[in-house]
Design a protein around this nucleic acid. Sequence first.
RNA 1: GGAGGGGUCGCAUAGCCCGGUCUAGUGCGCCCGCCUGCUAAGUGGGUCUAGGGGGUUAUACCUCUAGCGCGGGUUCAAAUCCCGCCCCCUCCGCCA
Length: 449
Amino acid sequence: MIDLQLLRQQPEIFREALRKRGEDIALVDEILAADEARRKILAELEALRNQRNTASKEIGKMKEDAAREDAKARARVVNEKIDAREKEIAEVEPRLRALVAEHPNIPAPDVPIGKDETENVIIKSFGKPRDFDFEPRAHWDLGPALGILDFERGIKLAGSRFFVMSGAGAKLQRALLQWLLDFHIAQGYREFQLPYLVKEDIMFGAGQLPKFRDNLYRDYERDAWFVPTAEVPLTGLHAGEILNAKNLPLNYTAYTPCWRKEPMSAGKDVRGIKRVYQFDKVEMYKYCLPAESAKELENLLNDAIATVAALGFTYRVKILCTGDLGFSAHKTYDIEVWSPGVNEWLEVSSCSNVGDFQARRSNIRFRREAGAKTEFVHTLNGSGLGVPRTMIAILENNQQKDGSVAVPEVLRERAMNRVALCLFRTASRAKRCASKLSRRKKISRADEL
RNA sequence: GGAGGGGUCGCAUAGCCCGGUCUAGUGCGCCCGCCUGCUAAGUGGGUCUAGGGGGUUAUACCUCUAGCGCGGGUUCAAAUCCCGCCCCCUCCGCCA
């Protein structure tokens, strides 16, 4: 949520923000008009209420019945005026609130201007795509061949864009999740286990509602929404609270499943597990002092980069331009890893400084010292990492000529088991195992444990 | 799901039966000061949030409005009366 008082004083800041994002600046004037209307009515309403309160007190002291009845009659007339004003404000106020809630965050000054994702700027890249002496296969071929990925049954169970993982694949994914969490804990984040459903106001507070209503799964019987990312409950965690400045920054991490309807990408990325309706993700989250958020974004980004580096990926980092910047974001970096099967850069992490945008919506504040005025904290969020896309990159980058996949070094200890070891280990080991397996004609069904 | 109890300004509580004297009292904590030669006691004051208006370079400050779990209703007037809902506690029932 933007600062309405700031908009009132300096509307040009907000027109500039909308212009940079390629959105209609008319929103600013609509807000100003609604705000002015509200304040005008409010002033009249409050004057009338004051009049009534004063009259009521006098009535309370009156002894004489006739005078009392007369005063009551007069008060009733005032009440009629109050009712009329209340009706007016009941119309204007929600409209103003809705308009303000629609306004996106202001991009940071150093966010490059651009119209869409084609104008994002690569600021860093690391590694070179691996050379293959064979044609690398896509995960939608590799996975089923290894017997660890099952699209048909995912569709049978839940429809398109759902999938099933099993055996060594399931175990590898579990190893990945655990490793990511432990990695972030070692980086100084506190792990949380959170509800995967949240109330509507929590969704609003994180900036998901009302704008992304169509993206969200919902329990209509209860006021409950399925989280599209752990960022939502991690924001809601301190909603309405006043934090102690001494405890900032708070560094949190959490695994949650994420549910997204993806109506905007119908027909896009339909194959494989790049874009699915339910996926797993480990998220990092920070609450910090306003002056620290720019620095903390760099810390967050580095913490996320450390994960892709440890997994041995070829990656690059982009800063999103104003046209591609998310609704709630002040500044965002995306981390993309190269994956040779799908032959593209996969966005596995998005790290954003949200500034006070979510803190305002969720009413999360802090005091610099006892008795000081409350101020809004800044919040940041970053994936570390999105699991299906990381799995794609692991499978496709570590594939061997024989169809086996080497498990990344950092996951080996956790992912080890007897059969999976044959499929997922070092190249030489995989080769030996693979030949053994092919003799047993089990290469396509090596998922038993 | 059933029965009962509860939700009040950081914490603990009073106020509710019987509407106005509630500008929500008191204790603790916290802040500022005084006193006492020393982390104790005493003593005076302050101490919620949001919004509007005034005021200021900016604070401070002044003033009004709203808020006693949430939402409605009755009334000139609601913490107080009525209705609906939510949450917590105790007990019972049912079920992983």
